[in-house]
Simulated assay, not measured.
Amino acid sequence: MRQIVLDTETTGLDPAQGHRVVELACVEMDNRSLTGRHLHLYLNPDRDSDPEALAVHGLTTEFLSAHPRFEDVAHQLVEYVKDAEVIIHNAAFDVKFLNAELSRAGLPAFETLCAKITDSLLHARELHPGKRNSLDALCERYGISNAHRTLHGALLDSELLADVWLAMTRGQDALLMDFAEETAGGGPGMRVERFDASVLRVVPAGADELQAHEAYLADLDKAAGGPCVWRALQAS
């Protein structure tokens, strides 16, 4: 299924208080590969951002006033997410704002526009119960650099979340012994995660190795006074 990683920036915390979406970004993945076909929109909210929100995203009223209003570009979002699974970190927050914007534009709720909504925060909490699961914490946990992230931006956060999502859902290719995180009791612990044996390279035995193996089995037969367990298994 086509997957879209989505993020928004807003003027505040609650659309019921008149707060609006000021930035919307979608990053597309197809067959778990980034396609580069992004959707990125700055939006004129026709109001100022709360000081706390402005400190997070840095998008000033003056800058946003030069961009289109949501209702003028809503069709781009509708077409972009059609039939896709949409992955959002803390989906309830973004969907609440998107539904408010779509309602103003006379359009149906966001969850009816796409095939599925997946909350990556809930998924992270299931994988890492009791741990910090913010985007920054997940980047650190999975070794994804976010050093260039000084302000929150919807496009950058979507790109980071796409990398995090691929890391969280790829399956492990090794046994990981993690002594950096602490157990619930406060001491260092060991975390053994899923192991995908399909990634191991199969190296067939050579002729000399097969000959040596047969000689070893013959010695076992002689010592046991009959077929050894390996021979018995081969014969069964």
Rank of each mutant, 00 (worst) to 15 (best):
E23D: 12
R104Y: 03
D219G: 04
V86S: 06
H123R: 12
L151V: 07
D30R: 12
T112I: 05
V86L: 04
E126S: 10
D83T: 13
L98V: 10
K222R: 15
G36W: 13
E71I: 04
L107M: 13
E79Q: 12
L113T: 01
T118M: 02
M177Y: 12
C139A: 03
L151F: 13
M190T: 11
A207C: 03
D136L: 02
A124P: 07
L6F: 01
A100H: 08
L34N: 01
R2P: 10
E101K: 11
G189F: 07
L138R: 07
T35L: 08
H213F: 13
T35P: 02
E85S: 11
D119P: 03
G130Q: 07
E181G: 05
T169E: 05
S236H: 12
G206Y: 04
H57W: 11
P68H: 05
S134G: 14
T61F: 00
V192G: 02
V21E: 01
V229A: 03
L122H: 03
R194L: 08
L102K: 08
L59Q: 02
D50W: 08
A124C: 04
H19R: 12
T169H: 10
G186C: 10
L121V: 01
G106M: 05
V192D: 00
L233R: 11
F97T: 03
D46W: 08
F63G: 08
L220A: 00
T169R: 10
V95F: 07
R231N: 03
G206K: 04
L43P: 00
A218D: 12
D173A: 09
R194V: 06
S198I: 07
E85M: 12
D221Y: 02
C26I: 03
A232L: 15
E140T: 09
A109Q: 13
E71Q: 15
L233M: 12
G225H: 09
G58W: 02
A55I: 09
D208A: 13
I88A: 00
F195T: 03
E214R: 14
D173I: 10
A167Q: 05
V78K: 04
F93Y: 13
D221V: 01
R132W: 08
K96C: 14
P108I: 10
R32Y: 07
V203M: 06
S65F: 07
L161R: 10
L233G: 00
L59E: 08
G185M: 09
L156F: 12
H148P: 02
A55F: 07
V202Q: 06
V199I: 14
Y142W: 12
S145G: 05
E193S: 11
R20P: 01
H38N: 15
A25G: 02
R104N: 04
Q76H: 11
H75F: 10
M168I: 09
G143M: 08
P204N: 04
V192A: 10
L175Q: 05
V203K: 09
A25L: 06
M168E: 04
L200M: 14
L59I: 11
K131D: 13
R170Q: 15
